[in-house]
Design a protein around this nucleic acid. Sequence first.
DNA 1: GGCATAAGCAGAGGTCGCGA
DNA 2: TCGCGACCTCTGCTTATGCC
Length: 301
Amino acid sequence: MGNFVLQDLMAAGPIMRTVSLPRGRQTLHTMPTSAGYEIRADVSYDWDGRRRGLAPFTVLQHTIGGRGNLRYETRTMQLKPGETLLLLIPHNHRYWLEKGDRWEFFWMSMNGEEALRIHRSILAITGPVLHLQPVTIDRLASCCHRLVTGGETPGAASAIAYEAAMVLYDDVFGSHPTYAQEYRALQHVLEHIEGHLDQRLTVADLADVAGLSRAHFSRIFAASEGLPPAEFVLQKRLRRAAKLLTKTADMPVKEVAALCGFDDPNYFSKVFRRLYGTNPSDFRTSGMYASLTAAPRHEVN
DNA sequence: GGCATAAGCAGAGGTCGCGA
DNA sequence: TCGCGACCTCTGCTTATGCC
């Protein structure tokens, strides 16, 4: 697909596909949900980011011609040809078409923790409107075309969506050494958190790992991951605890707490209840974990 | 004995404004 | 862009008590 360009996608005419694949046993970290190329001229085209359900996903939409409108939190702007829209849902935004306007675009929607994490990192730096290089647009158009016409298995579809996420990553971070450095620092912190969940993890320690001051680290971490660092660590610990509780029926709750970095089982019980709505022992016996969508109410991606 | 709940408190965390 | 200090909020811990 090396020579695929945007014109090839447009040549096929308006087309879209909702990617609905059977759930595999393993959760894929990047999964497309829909893709397509459209020319819209009707005011019924109107999406509100707060009314599209609670399951998180992202929308990547490149404007080929015409124009669209975007309200992002309190700011309102127009999307012109050559501009690419990146949005996380749910979120306080709306994009729509005004009467008499025309909007030609291609888009890809995807979910999965890796897609969400990468797109959130990009959004934290660039905001929702991106100005990508022509070669990036062509590669994204190629991904979109292959999603619409192929990607029949979960693995194949996931690979295409992941490629699209990486193409975007290269464009944004590859051309901005400072952004790349910051991204790598946060990656290092995330790895540090994963490897030390059973130990004391203060925000000051994590800021040291990132090589930043506590206040600045807290600021960029929250912008990148969608949660302040302490809350992020807490949710990671509670997810690990939930898994341990259901997988190790003989392990005392206080031992599960200790393995997840909670020195005090009483405190563990308190925060566990806050997140899951029930105490650890009831959670274990009720089989709640299986009924959850593999995540607590406020998911850490 | 193991665990949950509640109250109280110290210190850590989040966030803002400001300056370099 | 980043660090620093200040201020307010809330987390994390201790202790006491009660239930199974």
